[in-house]
Simulated scan of single mutants.
Amino acid sequence: MKRLVLLALAVFWPMTAAAQSCREDSVYLRGDWGQARFSVELADSGDERARGLMFRESLPRSSGMLFIYPTPRTVSFWMQNTLIPLDMIFVDTSGTVRKVHRSAIPGDTTGISSDSQIAAVLEINGGLSEAMGISPGTVLHHPAFDPDQAAWPCKDKTSD
């Protein structure tokens, strides 16, 4: 039952790429498991990426933070000063998920590495990626990904 509630809260519904807006404040995901949308805050500067979701006491179920890097790189996260468990979804330049770290432990200072060159990381509530089935191979739809390289491209920065 909890799994069904989590899926419903993640705004999980059938949709087509043509019907979706490609906006900075939204990320769409699709895979063999289905499709979903998350409202996101962007962390696209060094200061924003360094702070991330630290000191937050909660995160709405259909929300997250998208960390965007100017060039692909190997990154490492930790959970110091982070109060809520998070799933970290590591994404390459095509918008394809390469790694999912599930339920990172609040306050843990152990490094969580991307293990490869990535362009973005999506953080969502801990346990949600497993409940939904988000895994390597899932693709993201967001204007941060170059439409000439994206697995699920935006036609422009504002809409499909």
Rank of each mutant, 00 (worst) to 15 (best):
G127C: 13
R98C: 08
S113G: 01
G31K: 07
A119D: 11
I134G: 06
L29C: 04
T109S: 09
M54C: 06
G111Y: 00
R102L: 05
R61P: 12
R61A: 15
R51D: 02
Y28A: 04
R61F: 15
D47P: 00
F77R: 01
Y28P: 03
E48Q: 11
A131H: 08
L86G: 06
S135G: 08
I89E: 01
R73M: 12
A120P: 06
M65W: 03
A43E: 12
D92T: 11
S39M: 06
V97I: 09
N81F: 14
G46T: 15
E48L: 11
S116F: 05
R37C: 13
V75G: 07
T82I: 14
S63H: 14
V139P: 13
S76L: 02
P85F: 04
T93S: 11
A120H: 09
K99P: 01
V100T: 05
A50R: 12
S116P: 07
V100W: 10
I84A: 10
S114W: 12
R102S: 11
L83F: 06
V97D: 08
S62K: 11
R30N: 02
G31W: 09
N125E: 10
L86P: 07
D108C: 10
V91I: 15
T82V: 13
W78F: 09
D108W: 00
V40N: 10
S63L: 05
P60T: 03
D32W: 01
V100Q: 08
W78D: 03
S76H: 04
S58C: 05
I68Y: 10
L128S: 06
A119S: 15
L53S: 12
D47G: 07
E24C: 00
H101G: 00
M65A: 09
S114V: 12
G107Q: 12
F77D: 00
H101P: 00
M132N: 02
H101F: 09
D115W: 00
G126S: 07
G127S: 04
D92H: 14
I105T: 14
R73T: 12
A120W: 07
M88H: 09
D92N: 15
S116K: 08
D87W: 06
D108V: 00
A131K: 07
R102V: 01
S135P: 03
Q35P: 02
Q117K: 11
F67R: 01
V27T: 12
Y69S: 03
S26P: 00
V121E: 04
S114K: 11
V121K: 06
M65Y: 04
P72C: 00
F38Q: 02
T109G: 05
T110E: 05
G34K: 15
D87L: 08
A120F: 02
N125G: 14
R102K: 08
V27S: 06
G126E: 00
I105V: 15
M132P: 00
G126H: 03
